[in-house]
Simulated scan of single mutants.
Amino acid sequence: MPGARRLLWLIPLALVVTGGLAAGATFLGADRIESDLTARTRDALVAAELPSATVAFDGRDASIGNVPADQRGRARSVVLGVAGVRTAEVTGQPAEQAPEAGGHVKRDLQVRLDQLLAAEPITFQPDTAELTVQGTRSVSRVADMLTAAPANVTFEVGGHVARVPGGDPEGARTLSEERARVVANKLVEAGIAEDRVRAVGYGDTRPRSESGTTDLDRRVEITVR
């Protein structure tokens, strides 16, 4: 009988432990679901050119914030289009629309951009479209500056290469365009709309140094349009 009483006492304990494990598994599962939905929804918003929008999940229910007033309906549709999302609500005050830039705003931005690139050029490893450490750092700083620009400002990313004795002009143009595209892609990844960035390759036709063969000639320049 004492053994039977001990077994009866263990039954509720086992039920409590089992319930606790099940609750823990449910909590961890919900946390993973929310993390996955958040990551996929943010990707969808960036792809829809709404990179400033924020999103948070309570289970499968989304709360969207920091969206311009005229884009709130579209943002909600984008989020609802993500597999697994149950509901979506745009919350908070609409994000302020960036003012359109006049000529003086563009000129000021170009001056500041030129000063930055003069101090920290976007440079590349010789004969490649691989950024140097300095080039990577410079692109990051440029992206910070350009993402704050008004929405009607566009940018030409011009790629350049160093001169090579007996070099192929077509090969130089191709490499310079590849360099421009590397930088343009990083600007888009930073949140600038793809249709605002144009990559152009100039080959070795616009050297910065006298010889045209230095690191300064393996570069990318950015022009505000």
Rank of each mutant, 00 (worst) to 15 (best):
6 R>K: 10
9 W>M: 15
16 V>T: 05
16 V>R: 04
17 V>E: 01
21 L>A: 15
25 A>C: 08
25 A>P: 04
26 T>W: 12
27 F>M: 15
29 G>K: 02
33 I>F: 05
35 S>F: 14
42 R>P: 04
46 V>F: 03
49 E>G: 12
52 S>C: 13
59 G>S: 08
60 R>C: 08
61 D>N: 14
62 A>T: 08
70 D>M: 12
71 Q>E: 11
75 A>E: 00
76 R>V: 04
80 L>F: 05
81 G>L: 11
84 G>N: 08
85 V>G: 03
87 T>W: 09
92 G>S: 01
96 E>C: 06
103 G>K: 12
105 V>K: 01
108 D>Q: 10
109 L>P: 00
112 R>S: 06
118 A>F: 09
121 P>F: 06
131 L>P: 00
132 T>W: 07
136 T>S: 11
137 R>Q: 12
137 R>C: 02
144 D>K: 12
146 L>A: 03
148 A>I: 07
151 A>G: 10
152 N>R: 03
152 N>F: 01
152 N>Y: 05
155 F>W: 01
160 H>A: 11
161 V>G: 00
163 R>A: 14
165 P>K: 10
167 G>F: 09
167 G>S: 05
167 G>W: 13
168 D>Y: 07
168 D>I: 12
170 E>R: 11
173 R>D: 11
176 S>V: 06
182 V>K: 00
187 L>M: 01
190 A>Y: 02
193 A>G: 10
194 E>T: 11
197 V>G: 00
200 V>T: 14
202 Y>D: 06
202 Y>W: 13
203 G>M: 04
205 T>S: 14
205 T>W: 11
206 R>C: 08
210 E>V: 11
211 S>E: 05
214 T>M: 07
214 T>R: 09
215 D>K: 06
216 L>I: 05
220 V>Y: 00
222 I>V: 12
222 I>T: 03
225 R>K: 15
